[in-house]
Structures are given as structure tokens and as C-alpha cells.
Design a protein around this nucleic acid. Sequence first.
RNA 1: GCCCCCGUAGCCCAAUCGGUAGAGGCAGGUCCCUUAAAAGGAUCACAGUACGGGUUCGAAUCCCGUCGGGGGCACCA
Length: 925
Amino acid sequence: MSTDAAEIPAFRYTAELANQIEERWQRYWEDHGTYHAPNPVGPLKGDVPADKLFVQDMFPYPSGAGLHVGHPLGFIGTDVFARYHRMNGRNVLHTMGFDAFGLPAEQYAVQTGQHPRKTTEDNINTYLRQIRRLGLGHDERRRISTIDPEYYKWTQWIFLQIFNSWYDPDARKARPIAELISQFESGEREVEGGRTWSELSFADQQRILGEFRLAYMSEAPVNWCPGLGTVLANEEVTADGRSERGNFPVFRKSLRQWMMRITAYSDRLIDDLDRLDWPDKVKAMQRNWIGRSHGARVRFAVGDENIEVFTTRPDTLFGATYMVLAPEHELVDKIAAPDRVADVAAYRRAASLKSELDRQENKEKTGVFIGAYATNPVNGKEIPVYIADYVLMGYGTGAIMAVPGQDQRDWDFAKKFDLPIIRTVQPSEGFEGEAYTGDGPAVNSGFLDGMAIDDAKKTMIGWLEENGHGHGTVQFKLRDWLFSRQRYWGEPFPVVYDEAGTAIALPESMLPIELPEVDDYSPRTFDPEDADTEPSPPLSRATEWMTVELDLGDGLKTYRRDTNTMPNWAGSCWYQLRYVDPVETERFVNPENEQYWLGPRTAEHGPTDPGGVDLYIGGVEHAVLHLLYSRFWQKVLFDLGHLSGDEPYRRLFNQGYIQAYAYRDPRGVHVPADEVVEADGKYLYNGEEVTREYGKMGKSLKNVVTPDEMCERYGADTFRFYEMSMGPMDVSRPWATKDVVGAQRFMQRLWRNLVEETDGSLRVTDEEPSVEALRLLHKTIAGVHDDYANLRYNTAGAKLIELNNYVTKHYASGTPRALAEAMVLMLAPQAPHVAEELWSKLGHEGSLAHGPFPKADEQYLVEDTVEYPIQVNGKVRSRVVVSASAAQDEIKAAALAEEKIAELVAGGEPRKVIVVPGRLVNIVL
RNA sequence: GCCCCCGUAGCCCAAUCGGUAGAGGCAGGUCCCUUAAAAGGAUCACAGUACGGGUUCGAAUCCCGUCGGGGGCACCA
């Protein structure tokens, strides 16, 4: 094989040349602030067009492994979109920051003793180097990092806003806590126990306010994960009761922790989904997670006590033949019969030892009768009361009325314990199942008999309310958000505790509360299976930091700091707001800038537009974590008057994943994927057959391909073009390095059509393109416009290849300037460096980043003649060319007159002739 | 178990309203260029849309069923 470099023309678009061009233009963009987007006011003030666009990526966590080719898919996708709109004259905000608090840096710190800040900042620098090489058009002035004290100062500030507010259910919004205090002071709102507000001790006042605050401390059963040494939010625990991170067992443990009252927003979080341009899938997941059900609360008397239940089927009340309480239900001790106490205690103990996993896996019904009877309010019947672990304390009231006739779980339990079953809905004809959950007329139900379920529900709720046995209500699955973590690498809470243990918010002037230096970053972790352990956060060992003398208005006193930190969702809850005003020091965001970039625009988006980022791209894995928390914070800040819109993300788009093949040898060990060869449908590594599997890219799978490798071998533009050409943005697809050459060939052909490879001179002529060429050009422009605007980059790329192939074929001696310039401009969003280079070679000063993007000329989009396929009974039999302006009758006549068709029709009269203008003619015989 | 999405050439993917199944790329065949190879150019072939029914003048597209793949939820009353 010859390696004689002289054989490669000096100006061929090789990876080497591409890299030179890319390096040069990246420097040019930086030097010229090409992607700086001006703000209306403040430090980044500039001339702002009214037409703006805010495009955002889900910002990355800078892991030590760096990027693989899968990561930039979304980053390039947003960049193409941003570039397309920037070239069309819009003021485009596109940047990228880092979600940099989190577990891996802390774990790495524990292993190596290196400060997590150092690890994280090193990783950020690696990421920055990698994304710079991709030529992403970011406004680098707007980069933020959640670990920067100037950033988390405002995270803490927002925490204080939430802490200092309460939810007014009448106004359906958050209000400052001061307004609640004045209600208590004035007597407008009654203080518990009938006392006056001023009589109460400070601690009592705070305890009462804590029941209203949107951020509050609570002693409650939380998800304790000994293996991680921290507690977790419900959203971070998998369905089988394990930690999403690390896959350790999670136990319920009662601890005093910070909570966020996200449940106050349940209705709005569901209802406002209707106003968002989001994938239905994500909306469905959020609805499901919030879990709103309509039903009734019903009280059943047990002696002097009442058991209150929640049911979605009040219509089945006549069929309630027993009741079940959750084992932990507080009424159990009060109403259990003395001779049942021992059995009850034994069952409760057994239930508490069951892990979540046991409960999931073993759905065999268990329970124990507690020796009490309740009165069914609708018919006065005495029904037995059980405890059973299929009833959960955490949902509804922790108690149910059991209706075995219409609920399979109750049916199973009733069969096992030999309890009566009464059907109250007539099953449909031929029904052979057990519990019947379908619709049908009510039976055995007194005044409800004959009614359909919906009517029966309404009637029963009316009856309950009239007779004081209950009321209609709405129930949610969503729980309040557990907001404390026993970790070092997170935002400290901006509060201190006095001697009585009352939490006191620190004044804004003391922010940020910075993380102290500690010797040991690790939380104490435990045997993952040991539920009887207590969290011990790293900050509790920073004894000097923990105790602090402050004057908070009533003299110098000693306070204790909070040794927990915020979960790493905190920083990502509001970063879109900081992108808008990254260096503003007086406020977290200037309202004028917020209004401009994120405010509702009803003229453009319709009367219910909530505002928010114009396009937010990221993976679907954050559907109920980040995206729910972020919406919640936005709504609180909106209610408090800090923001103009009540949703953070107007449009959401989930990109697919780039996946990869991995190979294992017969021992099951992964072998390097790039050294595996395919032969006769088998996969061989060093001559040995290996098995192929499809999935993620990862170091341990030995199948990682990095963007750096691709930039070196092909250049960033080729890599970008290839990634965008692999398929639609939202589809997952396998990575195939061997296919990248296709993108490279296209780039080389386009380059060669414009540049003489031997001497670098321009191969562009002033020749006027043919009408045929102009038709194709303008068709391409129109199509590419449409494709870019709708994130169909793969088809945009295909259209450019098609146009370039046409040029190659018809203008071998030189490309007409009109074609060359349009091609370069249309290529620019996907391959910006080479487009800039060609644009300047074509004699243009400066950058094409701000346009012009070509416009399609209507006159070339209309054809003079149309070729109609002629179908006979739905099968194409012939074609005919007709003037584009021909009327339907003329088209029909032309079709029937066509030789082959006339033969087929053979003088007979067709039953029907369908003419679809511009499409085809179908003749039905 | 329940809900949602997806099945188009060997592979990745196109196909506005139901209207000629093919835009583009990879891999493959033939030819040109070349001492040869690479690169390049020209050109060709390949599926009838997972399967079975239905609606329609006409179905990849709409409806029903089956199979296969992916995802979400899961004792939530």
C-alpha cells in the first residue's frame, strides 16, 4: 500500500484539512462573539430583535468518562435548530452549563481523597474541550455551573422563597408567609386551641407555620438507603424498592427531614400539561405519577370511632362486606378486641419486616381479623375489620372498604378468608371472571338499582353528603418531595436552628452559605441490608462550621447549621432562568430579560401559552424527576410574582439514544468491539466466534466510540452531518462507524464542486443555472426550510446530497454561483465550519452565522406540466403528461385517450374515473 | 396483569390529506479511470411495507385480530 502523500491533492477535503478549517473558525467565532445573544437590559444588554428563540439542552453531568458519540446527538440537534433560526434573523439564546453536584464526584473523592470540586472542575474542562471541538454555537458568556457559589447562592435564595411561602387553596396559588402571619395576628384565621397568635411561643408559632410552608421540616417515614448512606425521594426509588442509583435496598424509616409541598400543586401540575407542547408519552407519565382519582371519602362507625376510607367506587357501597386497615393504621390499637391484640401485634411485626421487594413479589393475600366490626352507613350492616398489608398507609386514608364483587384484590382476600361477596353491578352477558369492573346496571343496591356506574356514583355521593357520612373528593398518588440528602457535595441549606431546634431562615445578605472544607467527604454508609442504621452526614463532622454565632435581630446567639444538603435536582430546577441573566448580581434574573426570553407570547403561541423555553431537548429519563420538580419551582416563583410565565419549558422534545453492539467471547468476557469482524453471519474476534448483543455504549462493554476519535478521523462537520443523517432525532439507532464514510464522501464531493483540489482555486462560474437546475434548487430550499424547522435533519441532509449530485452531473466544468452559494448556506446549520470556509472562499466578508438563509422562489416551485400515472382498478397501467393548468375534465380526457388505456377500456364506459389533481388518475372498470 | 409506541430492501432510514413504495447513506454487482490499489465517476440489482382479515376506486398510511421489539405503570382502593 502506498503512503505517498504527494498522491493526495493538497486541497482535498480530508480530515486533516477539515481539522485546520474547524480550528480556525472556532477561534474566529470566539474572537468575534459570533454566538453572543444580547439581552434587553443589564450586563448583557444589546440591540434585540423582537423575534427571539431560546433553545436548551438538558445540561450534562460532567462524568469522568467524558463524552461518547451518543451524548452529542441532542447537543448537535439543538445546535442545528439554533443555527437555522439564527441564520433566519432571530435572536437565538443557546448555551450549555453543567449539572455538577452529585454522587460520582463525591464517591471519587472518597476513593482518592481529591476534593470533589477539583474532580468536577477537571471533568468540566474535559467536556468543554470536547464540545468546543464539535463547533456548537454557544454563547459562552452564559455558561453556568451549579457548583459555583454565585449560582447556588440563588438556588439557596429560591429555597428561602419557597420556605417563606404557603399555598392558599382558595386563591389556588402560593402567597408570602407574612400574609398568613397577619391572618393569624388579626384573628382572620383561627389559631389552634383558640389562643391568640401573640400568646404563642416563637417555637409554637413556627411549628404552626411549618404546617403551611411550601418547604417544611417533618418527621415522617422516608426512604432510607443504608447502602448509599442517604435518604431518597420517592422518584429516586424503583418499583421494586431499590435505589435508582446503586440499586441498593431502600427501607421506610421515620426521620426529621426537609420536604417540599409539591402536592399543593397536584391539580395545576396535571391541568397545565394541556398547555404544553410536549410528547404525549411524557405527559402521560406525569399524569400517571401525580395520579389524580375522583371518588369519595366515607366514614364507617366502629363504636365511638370512625374509620374513614377513600374509594373511587362509592356506587359499590352496598357491596362492602368487610373493611381493611393498613397494618400501621393508628386506629388499630384503639379498636382491636383484647383477645386479638396478640395476633394483631404479630402480624404487624411480620409486615414491618417485609421489605418493599417482598411485598412486590409475593402478592398472596395475608391479613388478620382485629375483632372489631364497623357499620356500613348505607345499610347499617355490621362488617368485620381486618388489617392486611395490601392496604398501604401512604395512599388515601390507609383504610379501605372492601368490595369483593367489583375489585379483584378484595375478591382474592374474601375467598381466602371466606367472606361474603355481593355483586352490585350486573356483569355483562357471558362474563366468566371473578370481580367485575366493567359498566352495567347497579343491583342489590337499594336506591341505586338500575343506574349506570356514573349516575350511581353521583347519586351515592349526594346521599353521603346529605346524610353526613362522607363527601366527594379527589385523591392523588403524588407525595411531598423529600428534599434532604446526607451528602457533602450539594447545596447547603440556608437555615440555622436555635436551641429549641426551630429552623430559622438566614437573611438574603448572608448568601451564599458556602460548603465548608472537610477532611472526609463520605457519608457513613452501611451494610445495604441493615435497616436499623441512622444517617450520618459528612457535614456533621465539620464541627467548626456547624456551630455559628449570629445576630439575627435579637442579639448574638449560638445557632446550629443544617448538616444536610439539597438533592442534586435543586440546581437543575431553575437553570433556564440563570441562562437568561447569568451575571446579574442583584437578582436571580432581571424581570425584563425573563419576560423577553421566557414570557408567554400569546400572539405567536395562542391564548393559553404558558411561556418557557422554546425548545428543550433531552432524554426521556427525566420525565417525572427533573421535569416535575422544575415545573413546581417555576409555579411557586410565578405565584410569588418573580416570573412572567408559569411553565419552564413550552416545548419538549425527547431525542433517541445512540446505541451500540457489544461482543462477548465464549467465557462471557467483553472483547473490543472495533476489532470484531463479521464473516458469513458470524462475528469473530481473533478468529474466535463471539456473541453479539445490542445496548448501551460503555467502558465496561468495550464498545465506546468518542467524538474526539471521529473528529480526528473525519472532522467535526462530517461527524455532525453523519449523526444528523442517521435517522429522525427521536429514534434510537445503532452506531456504525463504517457508515460515517458516506457523510465524508458527500462533504468531499461538495467541496470538490466548489474548490479545485489541486490548487485550492474556486471552481465557481457566473453561468446562469438552467431552469431545470433552478427548479431543483428552489424545491430543495423549500424542503430544507421545512425539514430544519421540524427537526427532520436526516431528510434535509438527503435533499442536499441530491442537489449536490445533480450539480456534479450537470456542471462538471464548474458550479454556477447561484447554486454554490445556496448549497453552502443550507449546509451551514449541520456543517458550520466548512460552510464558513466556503462562504469566505466565495468572497464574502465575515461569518454566515446570521444569514442569509436562502429563500425559495415561488415561480420555480410550480411546474408547467404534470405527469399523471393512470391507474386502472388501482393498478398503474400507463402515464400521461398534461399541462399543470389543465382542468379535471381535460386530465380525464387525456387519460382516457392514452393508447394503452384506450385499449384496456376497449370502447366500454368506465364505471368511474377519479382524478386527483397533481397526483393521479384512477379508472374503475 | 394494565397502558403507550414501533415493525418498509442485507443494514440505517424516506414516502404532507389514504393517491406511482424509494429521497439519501452503508454493504453488494458491472463498467470507466488506474501498471495496480485507494479515491473518484457512471450504472445496476434488491423489498411490495411482520402476518391474517376489513373499509375504500385506491391502504405502508384508517379499523379489527395475531406475532415480534421497545417503553411506562403495577396490591394506589
